[in-house]
Design a protein around this nucleic acid. Sequence first.
DNA 1: CGCGCTATTGATATTCATCAAACTGCGTGG
DNA 2: CCACGCAGTTTGATGAATATCAATAGCGCG
Lengths: 248, 248
Amino acid sequence: MPMQDMHIVHHECGDCPIRHRAVCARCDSDELTRLEQIKYYRSYQAGQTVIWSGDRMDFVASVVTGIATLTQTMEDGRRQMVGLLLPSDFVGRPGRATAAYDVTATTDLVMCCFRKKPFEDLMQTTPHVGQRLLEMTLDELDAAREWMLLLGRKTAREKIASLLGIIARRDATLKLKAPKGALSFDLPLTREEMADYLGLTLETVSRQISALKRDGVIALEGKRHVTIPDFDRLMEEAADDSDGGFLD
Amino acid sequence: MPMQDMHIVHHECGDCPIRHRAVCARCDSDELTRLEQIKYYRSYQAGQTVIWSGDRMDFVASVVTGIATLTQTMEDGRRQMVGLLLPSDFVGRPGRATAAYDVTATTDLVMCCFRKKPFEDLMQTTPHVGQRLLEMTLDELDAAREWMLLLGRKTAREKIASLLGIIARRDATLKLKAPKGALSFDLPLTREEMADYLGLTLETVSRQISALKRDGVIALEGKRHVTIPDFDRLMEEAADDSDGGFLD
DNA sequence: CGCGCTATTGATATTCATCAAACTGCGTGG
DNA sequence: CCACGCAGTTTGATGAATATCAATAGCGCG
């Protein structure tokens, strides 16, 4: 990798695109000032590893822009994604010294980092950060449990449809549109990353995407741009009990 | 079911077997007094449903004794367990009105319940409950992610070995013994519940247990009592990367 | 232009699910 | 007391879903 482009941007928290959703969402201006004093930004290129499982981790962070993944790897190389981190999501665990998972930037990524010790102190002395972090962690736990249902009980086709639904919904949220009728977006993951998310092989992912395309559930332009003519149809294919599916 | 034995025991918190591990673990005596005022006990018989997904849930609770499960069910009946609740584990989500999962007592169960509103108030005014709940939720999230690796990437045999390891470890913890060399315990789950935990069918669970027995990895007395002659051997079968595996 | 990466598609193998039958232990009622 | 029934479990035969191995195709980029 030739260039080591450590773009150190500096935002005012007031302008921050994730101000209202991240771990700082509930902070008053006083708390925000304290956070502002210990924060710094880091950028990563698509494909870069942020940290390896087991490595010392002296910071926690929020994803500002871009997408990162958490993955676990077994000794023989089998891999399972266990987290998909979108803007405003939190990385790292207060009170833990080493990373528990591999963290990888799948797109160009900017994170707002806090050195761990000052962040932990701040959590002790001000309630709002801890409260928000609890709320976010509970949301993640719900998402993890939905994901467990997918991994344990859904067919390959249902898994693909579910993942496309999750991405479509998130994308619609960013664009402030309800996920109804036709919508389209770019896949932020390769076939292999999708396979790691879904507990499948990349070949099976490819085949099922082709099948959904053949059946008119989705349309593709190039490999990455997906159009969904009928969102409800996709949801039927995903076999989600609660059509709502993901909270938020 | 003939008997509807709603044993309403009343413990002093000081004597409580889960005092040092549950959501109240960090409370000082003042906070404990406030908790004591809003707590009440509920008992359930093995097999009883505590609450159905979607039902109104006006309390949160700690498991005091016994085991409960969280499960999700799809419209066509496919089921996936998404939580296994042991003594000291927390049930319910502050700020949520309805249950997100089916909660079932798999053994006789006693829970220490708090009406939701007073509990939420208490979380606002005292920090220790929220802090402890955050810690517990982060632990659960880690466990869920370990579980996702199991569901997505492990073979049936590895799944069984992993589950036996988890149960054995927990049991050893209760007995204050390191899980080394030979140890034995009773399975708290039926074959079907194990299947729901592991994303398998009960037939596959049964076959793999038989296979592990044939291969001398485990020994059985009756259907439920398991002896593990060599814990390290079991861990090899489970293919866990970090032999430690579960925190705790 | 051709290399390397991602993706698709095909042929085959393997694992696990499904359908089916029978066994075990235990409580109940004849 | 024994027979019956039932829930939980085991085991067998078969089939379907997905993994594996392999070849090829698109596509951006040096």
